[in-house]
């Protein structure tokens, strides 16, 4: 059984004139110890999906449909207090910007200790010892000297390590990492990715890695889900999708990645831009930009269908063979 199972999730934001659908009919699952990459452009619904899983959709946004199960237990309709016990304890989070994720007026140690105490019955002294171990584990040099420092005394990469230490305070089984490397230098990015991978390997922690960086996905993820305009358009093992993407959008994404040593031809790009939430077209959301769009694509919204052993794609080009289902 999957550790996390999201079924037909729908997240809506009521706006003045009409309701905006940020996440539409998204289903995904993550097994224990697995890294699922979620990739897509800004506004594709990646972060909202992550926020929905930990129950932190900003009001007036709300989960309008679907189910979220964690370790077999439904967690999307729990009371607030029970959701709080899942956050941090069962599902840890890492945010995008380490510069703003930490409260500037509290020392790193204070923030670690309060998080540890919120999820365990340890004494304060024991919690501090645990905090020191965590800082050491995420690779902060000389943690005993750094634990009483304020966040601004750390560099960006070190702060992201502190954020990761905060995420693993209670040894969660799943970490939702929302663009954990976007705000960092490239050289620091790979260190943070390596740290996440190591934690995943050593503790068997599953990671939902939200990013728009295909390179990060290729390096880290076991499986990848590609999101477009609030929907998953393709999901499958990362090697398979990188090597032979099925969905025209994924293909476009792959072609637009610059490669070292390739010829100096202009980089391919997908024409147009992803539609805003209030102007998602009828039918397949990608059809206005799709080179292979047909008349049917303008009317029928494709469902996610299995195309190979373990890859699924939501595209009518692959729908013909099994249209009767």
């Amino acid at each position: 059984m999957a550790l996390l199972q999201v079924d037909r999730l729908r997240v809506e934001f009521p706006a003045r004139q009409r309701t905006l659908v940020a996440v539409d009919d998204v289903s995904l699952s993550i097994d224990a110890g697995e890294v699922l990459g979620v990739v897509g452009e800004s506004g594709a619904g990646k972060s909202v999906t992550g926020a929905a899983i930990i129950g932190l959709i900003e009001p007036p946004g709300r989960i309008a449909g679907g189910e979220i199960r964690f370790a077999g237990r439904r967690i999307d309709c729990l009371p607030d207090d029970a959701k709080r016990h899942i956050r941090g304890r069962e599902i840890g989070s890492v945010f995008q910007d380490p510069l703003t994720s930490l409260n500037p007026l509290f020392t790193v140690g204070q923030q670690l200790v309060e998080t540890i105490l919120a999820h365990s019955d340890r004494t304060a002294a024991d919690a501090r010892r645990h905090a020191l171990r965590l800082l050491e584990e995420v690779g902060i040099p000389a943690p005993a000297q750094r634990i009483d420092a304020y966040p601004h005394e750390f560099s960006g990469g070190m702060r992201q390590r502190v954020v990761i230490a905060l995420a693993i305070c209670a040894a969660p089984r799943l970490i939702i990492a929302d663009e954990p490397t976007t705000a960092l230098d490239v050289s620091i990015q790979s260190q943070i990715i390596a740290l996440l991978k190591r934690l995943c390997r050593e503790h068997g922690t599953a990671i939902m890695l939200i990013t728009h960086d295909m390179g990060v996905i290729a390096e880290t993820a076991d499986r990848v889900a590609v999101m477009y305009a609030g929907r998953i358009v393709e999901v499958g093992p990362v090697r398979q999708i990188l090597r032979s993407p099925n969905h025209p959008y994924t293909q476009g994404l792959m072609e637009s990645i610059p490669r070292l040593g390739s010829d100096s031809a202009p980089l391919a790009q997908i024409d147009g831009a992803m539609p805003r939430l209030h102007e998602i077209p009828v039918g397949c959301a990608f059809h206005p930009r799709c080179p292979d769009a047909s008349e049917r694509c303008r009317e029928t919204r494709p469902a996610l269908r299995m195309v190979a052993d373990s890859a699924s794609v939501a595209c009518l080009l692959f729908d013909d063979g099994c249209a009767d289902d």
Binding site: R84, R89, S93, F95, T100, E114, A118, L166
Partner: peptide, 22 residues
């Protein structure tokens, strides 16, 4: 509205601590 308050929620801190401490 700040990120560190959102992150404090994501860490599973009780509302009381988030509101009155942070």
């Amino acid at each position: 509205r700040t990120d560190y308050i959102k992150f404090a929620r994501a860490r599973g801190l009780p509302d009381r601590v988030i509101h009155f401490r942070h």
